[in-house]
Amino acid sequence: MSKTYKWGILGAGRIARKFANDLKYVEGARLYAVGARTADSAHEFAIEFADVKEYDSYKKLVSDPEVDAIYVATPHGFHHEHVMLCLEHGKAVLCEKAFAINTREAKEMIALAQSKKVFLMEALWTKFNPHYLKTMALIRSGKIGKVKSLHANFGFKPFEPVPQRLFDPLLGGGTLLDIGIYNVFIALSVLGRPDVIEATAELSDKGIDMQLSVLFKYKGGEQAQLFSSFYTDLSNECDICGEEGRIRMGTRFFAPDTSITYYEGKPDTAEVIPYHREQGFGYQYEARHVQECLTGGLIESPVVTWNDTIVQMEVMDEIRKLIGVSYPKDK
């Protein structure tokens, strides 16, 4: 008889609710408990999702011996603190991105997972979604020939009430760690770590990036142009351009409800590439992978490795250094 994994959710916000919803599509998964900062938040979450234990503190959640794995869904400014709490209590962790504020924090989190021999993975959900897998398979097949450039943008204009985490340096505010990370992720996935990084940004009066332009350069001549903004609702698309064609991941290129279009030549050669997606928001794929890892006795994912996370954090640290964004937790 296969094991049922009892999931705890640390944080009771919007992303936590989406992940909790998608657990019903994962065989052997049970939404077991939620931990929130207040009793009211935990209770509201528990009402929405029936038969869920509610805890009015994160410490109480991680202390529950029945919890097998915890999804950390708090703002990234708190990830280091909350992941360390989970690991200290021997709980397997799936931590939302951005994994941490900086590379130092990320390395400390991974080091504790190693020493405790407890599973830890960054929740880069895109890497498990069917549209991403289909796109990467097309690239590997030579569909567009040698990739020479990538162009990704992600922008939105926050609406009221504006989350504090977006603009507060104490919480790792700015476009890079909130949405620009998707641009960095897809560039690293397709082209690898760049040899040269150039970046420019407009900073707020609090010193966080309101809009950001990044250029990755590679020794083979390849380039990636990445743009993120809190000023405008952008198309949020990604073009991957090769010597023999182009692939466009449409609006919300990072999510399973996007589209994939192949262009052999000019725009009138467009061919929509079909792919199958399940019901739900798309978080079930990463949850399913975590359970497979736990069943196999792994403490590190072979898909989103610890090195993947460190490289991504190092690249984002370098970008922040170039644009002059420093957080209190960097000191």
Rank of each mutant, 00 (worst) to 15 (best):
residue 320 R to A: 06
residue 145 G to M: 05
residue 53 K to L: 03
residue 165 R to V: 12
residue 78 F to W: 12
residue 27 E to L: 09
residue 65 P to K: 01
residue 216 F to M: 05
residue 19 F to A: 11
residue 290 V to T: 13
residue 263 Y to K: 02
residue 267 P to M: 05
residue 225 Q to V: 05
residue 223 Q to A: 07
residue 209 D to I: 03
residue 256 P to A: 14
residue 159 F to K: 14
residue 210 M to A: 15
residue 47 I to T: 15
residue 306 W to D: 03
residue 147 V to Q: 08
residue 113 A to H: 07
residue 24 K to C: 13
residue 234 L to N: 12
residue 83 V to G: 12
residue 265 G to I: 01
residue 145 G to Q: 01
residue 72 V to L: 00
residue 288 R to M: 14
residue 21 N to H: 15
residue 138 L to E: 13
residue 90 G to S: 08
residue 248 R to S: 07
residue 297 G to D: 00
residue 41 S to N: 11
residue 137 A to S: 09
residue 156 F to S: 10
residue 185 F to T: 14
residue 322 L to A: 02
residue 62 V to E: 09
residue 268 D to N: 06
residue 313 M to N: 14
residue 325 V to T: 00
residue 256 P to F: 07
residue 10 L to F: 04
residue 213 S to A: 10
residue 56 D to L: 03
residue 162 V to S: 08
residue 304 V to A: 05
residue 261 T to K: 09
residue 217 K to D: 15
residue 101 I to G: 11
residue 306 W to I: 02
residue 306 W to T: 00
residue 55 Y to W: 01
residue 292 E to Q: 13
residue 153 N to P: 01
residue 152 A to E: 00
residue 206 K to V: 12
residue 301 S to Y: 06
residue 253 F to M: 04
residue 102 N to A: 02
residue 108 E to P: 03
residue 281 F to W: 11
residue 142 G to E: 04
residue 31 L to E: 13
residue 84 M to V: 07
residue 15 I to K: 09
residue 66 E to A: 00
residue 311 V to C: 03
residue 79 H to W: 06
residue 213 S to N: 12
residue 105 E to L: 00
residue 97 K to G: 08
residue 206 K to F: 06
residue 5 Y to I: 13
residue 200 T to N: 09
residue 318 E to R: 11
residue 301 S to F: 06
residue 259 S to Y: 09
residue 323 I to L: 06
residue 162 V to R: 08
residue 238 C to Y: 02
residue 19 F to P: 15
residue 298 L to S: 08
residue 314 E to A: 07
residue 11 G to Y: 00
residue 135 T to I: 00
residue 182 Y to P: 02
residue 139 I to Y: 08
residue 278 E to W: 10
residue 318 E to D: 15
residue 246 R to T: 08
residue 222 E to K: 01
residue 183 N to W: 01
residue 2 S to I: 11
residue 237 E to H: 09
residue 92 A to R: 01
residue 129 N to P: 13
residue 113 A to Q: 10
residue 259 S to L: 12
residue 87 L to E: 06
residue 96 E to A: 10
residue 77 G to W: 04
residue 8 G to C: 01
residue 328 P to Q: 06
residue 24 K to W: 13
residue 142 G to Y: 00
residue 161 P to S: 03
residue 157 K to A: 13
residue 141 S to M: 02
residue 53 K to P: 01
residue 188 L to G: 09
residue 328 P to T: 03
residue 51 D to A: 07
residue 208 I to K: 08
residue 82 H to I: 10
residue 319 I to N: 00
residue 17 R to M: 07
residue 53 K to V: 01
residue 125 W to K: 14
residue 141 S to T: 02
residue 110 I to W: 00
residue 286 E to D: 15
residue 329 K to C: 08
residue 266 K to D: 09
residue 309 T to C: 03
residue 62 V to N: 05
residue 96 E to V: 00
